[in-house]
């Protein structure tokens, strides 16, 4: 039976996974009723987490989760890039290297020896690096996990042919708009909100706890002197005002997004003081 009228070609979406926990892919599945609208607007061609029907490329939009931690993955991302018009990283791992980038300050060989009975079978790089260190990335979605509404917004814009644009301001604006009491000022918690990018809806401070920077630095990676995020000033206050010892200050910045340039530079500076 033929279709009553020719439907326009829908953009083809693919979702790829690298070193990650799958939480960002689950954020896509958590779109619930919007997932149906997504299926209407796009041809979900490749999404192994959701469907065993995996169609070959090329793809219009690729969502890439996870960081590069193995020689195989370093090779595979090149092929993903070749098959894709618009490559979007989703989450802290793909965008900044993730929590597993803590290995970049450690001896991976020693870990292998300690964990595995036959470490010689483990093929692992000594670093965990963001996708952008390997191929050109067209757009980055931050967060651990990503915010599903931000994902939906970006796809909505792409389908409309509009350049996606997400706010890069600090978490503090969102906190104040929500009427939250500042956990740093009123409780003395070492909140990273002032140097962290908005987008989560200020979830942690709304629950009375300090932001740990899972959306990465405000205004993205620092591009020059005198630009936000001013991690140095906040770190000085953590130490001098909130009485964190240098090791604690270092650990605040060396977390989920610890490998992104501005947070990395700050944690390295405090490591020297420990």
């Amino acid at each position: 039976m033929s279709k009553p009228e020719e439907e326009p070609q829908k953009p083809r979406l693919a979702v790829f996974k690298f070193a990650s926990c799958d939480g960002c892919q689950l954020s896509i599945l958590n779109l619930e009723e919007d997932l149906l609208a997504l299926g209407q607007a796009l041809d979900i061609a490749y999404f192994p987490e959701a469907s065993s029907d995996m169609k070959p490329g090329p793809y219009d939009i690729a969502l890439v989760e996870g960081s590069i931690t193995t020689p195989d993955d370093a090779h595979r991302i090149l092929s993903v890039r070749r098959q894709t018009k618009m490559l979007i990283t989703i989450g802290a791992c793909a965008t900044a290297g993730g929590i597993q980038a803590l290995r970049n300050w450690a001896d991976v060989e020693a870990f292998k020896q300690a964990v595995y009975p036959s470490p010689e079978y483990i093929q692992s790089l000594s670093t965990s690096t963001p996708i952008s260190e390997h191929v050109h990335v067209d757009f980055e979605l931050w967060g651990c996990p990503i915010d599903k509404n931000q994902l939906l917004r970006v796809i909505t814009d792409l389908v409309a042919g509009v350049q996606p644009r997400l706010p890069a301001d600090s978490v503090c604006l969102e906190c104040k708009r929500r009427g939250n009491v500042c956990v740093l000022v009123a409780k003395g918690l070492p909140c990273l909100g002032p140097v962290t990018r908005t987008g989560c809806g200020a979830i942690c401070p709304s629950m009375g706890r300090d932001c740990y920077g899972c959306f990465g630095p405000s205004e993205g990676a620092r591009k020059g002197p005198g630009l936000p995020p001013n991690t140095a000033s906040l770190a000085r206050h953590f130490h001098g005002g909130l009485q964190l010892v240098p090791l604690e200050v270092m650990r605040r910045f060396r977390g989920i997004n610890g490998y992104v340039s501005s947070f990395r530079a700050e944690s390295n500076a405090w490591e020297k003081k420990t």
Partner: peptide, 14 residues
Amino acid sequence: VAGRCLACANCTMV
């Protein structure tokens, strides 16, 4: 002062 300011916008919000 720019060396201390976080550009976090808290001052303007309150």
